[in-house]
Amino acid sequence: MPYRWTDPAPDVRVLRLWPHNSLPRRGVGVVVLTTFTLLMVPLLALLGSVLLWGLLPFALLAVGGIWVALNRSYRDRDILEVLTLTEREVHLGRRNPDGGTQNWACNRYWARAEMHDTDGPVPHYVTLKGAGREVEIGAFLSEEERQALFLELQTALHP
């Protein structure tokens, strides 16, 4: 699952959540190189012809488009959420893809996890509620992962 609980101190629990990337960074290079190779094979028959120079820019444009799209996908999924549970406080920090951060803190006694089965932007939308605010957590996870996260959050917040 793209989240992990750790216990850095005796009375502190930390949950880190991140989006799942099915294609590793090295895989991007392999995909782009494979696309380039497969696009160049038909152009071998045109070596020495004027048609090669007419088709080559379009092939390179397609390879460049794939490179830009895959890098944009990685940049958009560069999200990290960190939930810190101490004896008295719950703190949620989020690093957005644009580099900005969002923070939320609440007294642990008043914090609670809620699941909105159909009311949220995604099915089984999980939020944390407390200190007069309601914040989302793990909206980028799959439906099954959000359901498992909700159960873990309930037991972690109020053991």
Score class of each variant (00 low, 15 high):
Leu55Lys: 08
Ser49Tyr: 07
Leu157Tyr: 11
Glu152Asp: 00
Leu157Lys: 15
Leu39Ala: 08
Thr84Arg: 14
Arg88Lys: 15
Ile137Pro: 00
Gly29Met: 00
Thr35Cys: 06
His158Ile: 09
Gly29Trp: 02
Glu145His: 09
Arg108Pro: 07
Pro24Gln: 04
Arg112Glu: 07
Glu134Trp: 02
Thr37Ala: 09
His116Tyr: 13
His124Ala: 13
Val41Glu: 05
Thr37Val: 09
Phe140Trp: 06
Ile66Phe: 15
Gly64Arg: 07
Glu136Gln: 07
Leu157Gly: 12
Arg88His: 13
Leu157Ala: 10
Met40Gly: 11
Gln102His: 15
Thr86Ile: 14
Glu134Tyr: 04
Ile137Arg: 00
Gln102Cys: 14
Thr155Met: 13
Ala131Pro: 05
Val28Gly: 06
Arg72Leu: 06
Gly27Phe: 11
Ala59Asn: 11
Leu149Asp: 05
Leu149Cys: 06
Thr101Ile: 12
Pro24Met: 05
His158Pro: 07
Trp53Phe: 08
Trp67Ile: 11
Asp76Val: 11
Leu70Trp: 01
Arg26Val: 13
Asp119Trp: 06
Gln147Arg: 14
Ala105Leu: 02
Met115Arg: 13
Ala113Trp: 01
Met115Ser: 11
Met115Thr: 11
Arg75Thr: 09
Leu51Ser: 13
Phe140Val: 03
Gln154Asp: 12
Pro121Lys: 03
Thr101Lys: 09
Val30Asp: 04
Asp78Leu: 12
Pro159Lys: 00
Trp53Gln: 12
Gly138Thr: 04
Tyr109Thr: 14
Gly65Phe: 14
Val90Phe: 02
Val126Ala: 04
Leu60Arg: 01
Arg112Gln: 10
Leu85Thr: 03
Leu85Glu: 05
Thr84Val: 12
Trp110Gly: 09
